[in-house]
Amino acid sequence: MAKDNLSAVLYGIEDLRLEQRSIPTPKNDEVLIKVEVVGICGSDVHYYRYGKLRYKEVKKPMLMGHEASGQVVEVGKNVTHLKIGDRVAIEPGIACGSCNFCKQGKYNLCLTMQFCATPPVDGNLTRYYCHSARFCHKLPDNLSFEDGALLEPLAVGVHGCRRGKVTVGSVVLIMGAGPIGLVTLLSAKSFGASKVIILDLVDNRLQVAKQLGADYVLTIEKHMSEDDIVRKIQKILGESPTISFDCSGSEICVRIVLKVTKRGGTAVLIGMGKLEQTVPLSTALFQEIDVIGGYRYCNDYPTAIEFLKTGRINVQPLITHKFKIEDTLQAYETAISGKDNPIKILIYPNKDRYPAIFS
């Protein structure tokens, strides 16, 4: 067994350090994973910059990372569905399985959820990591470790589309063409949406959205008012969207979603913004719009895997940057600066498998 377990650990605001940690031993219901790919998420960047997110604050050193895949190298004695050598995607939230939410099949709402890189729980940006076998999903042979790491954000898009009941013929609006907006686009098209329009401030993200199958894109310019944007959306689509997603968390985007959604339609809120916002709820009342929250994912990894396995979704165009774990700080600074237009940044803890990338 290797002894090198280089790990990326956050000690406080902008205090991210690389250090050696001992390689853990899996408990009876766990597997030990040689981590191959870890993506950087907006929440990771928020913890790095501010030391907290919503009610969660970094009060002790925390191992970063939650979008990950790897290979099983050891199994606990109670694990029967996985074996050494299996390639897996790590679903980062470990639900208790016994609370009322878990029993109802809504384990993403579990009140005792242990979620990677959410204080005080350690993440998986490390060479070797133990995780509950219940939340490790075996990767089909035709999927890469990169696909496996990107299953985490993709599952968010799948969950949002399920919450909004996107189906054949749906007319969809997506506010925000960041990683979550783009995976929501991919999911909506895979669920059968007939028309999808996506909006953002950044042109290069909208170009990627076109590549991924968006029917229409619209750049939001600073001089545009909310009503200007609403009218442009309706003009481009030729109608109002039946299902609208806010994937930005921005107050103005939530307001636009509530104003533009078709009477009797659905507004799905996925982006995390300010805790309190001023939004036109009366519009939702008069138009009888269903306002729905979409929180992470719940039983969505199998669908996301099937979308990738069958080729209905390709997440590779989302990948813009690749770093060795030794260059983790540079990866985070790239995410913050926006240099070279990052969308999805990947870190490779065990670079020996990727000589072509890091030669």
Rank of each mutant, 00 (worst) to 15 (best):
C102M: 09
K103D: 06
Q104P: 00
G105F: 00
G105R: 00
K106N: 04
K106G: 00
Y107K: 00
N108R: 08
N108H: 13
L109W: 06
C110M: 03
L111F: 14
L111R: 09
L111K: 15
L111W: 12
T112D: 14
T112P: 04
T112A: 09
A117F: 07
T118Q: 06
T118Y: 13
T118L: 07
P119M: 13
P119K: 15
P119V: 11
P119L: 12
P120I: 14
D122R: 10
D122H: 13
D122Q: 08
D122I: 11
G123H: 05
G123D: 06
G123Q: 07
L125A: 11
T126I: 07
Y129M: 14
C130V: 15
C130D: 14
C130S: 15
H131S: 08
S132Y: 13
R134H: 13
R134C: 09
R134E: 15
R134S: 15
F135N: 06
H137R: 08
K138M: 14
K138H: 12
L139F: 11
P140E: 10
P140K: 06
P140R: 05
P140D: 04
L143N: 02
S144Q: 04
F145I: 04
F145D: 07
E146Q: 12
E146P: 00
E146C: 07
D147W: 12
G148K: 14
G148H: 15
A149Q: 11
L150K: 01
L150W: 12
L150N: 06
L151E: 03
L151Q: 03
V156H: 05
V156P: 02
V158S: 05
V158P: 00
H159F: 08
G160V: 11
G160H: 05
G160W: 12
C161P: 00
C161D: 04
C161V: 02
R162E: 02
G164A: 07
K165W: 06
T167L: 00
T167W: 01
V168P: 00
V168I: 02
G169F: 06
G169V: 01
S170T: 08
V171S: 02
V171Y: 01
V172R: 02
I174P: 00
I174T: 03
M175T: 00
G176T: 03
A177S: 11
A177M: 04
P179I: 13
P179V: 13
I180F: 15
L182A: 10
L182I: 13
L182M: 07
V183M: 09
V183Y: 06
T184I: 12
T184Q: 12
L185A: 09
L185F: 09
L186G: 05
L186R: 06
S187M: 05
A188T: 03
K189T: 03
K189M: 05
S190L: 05
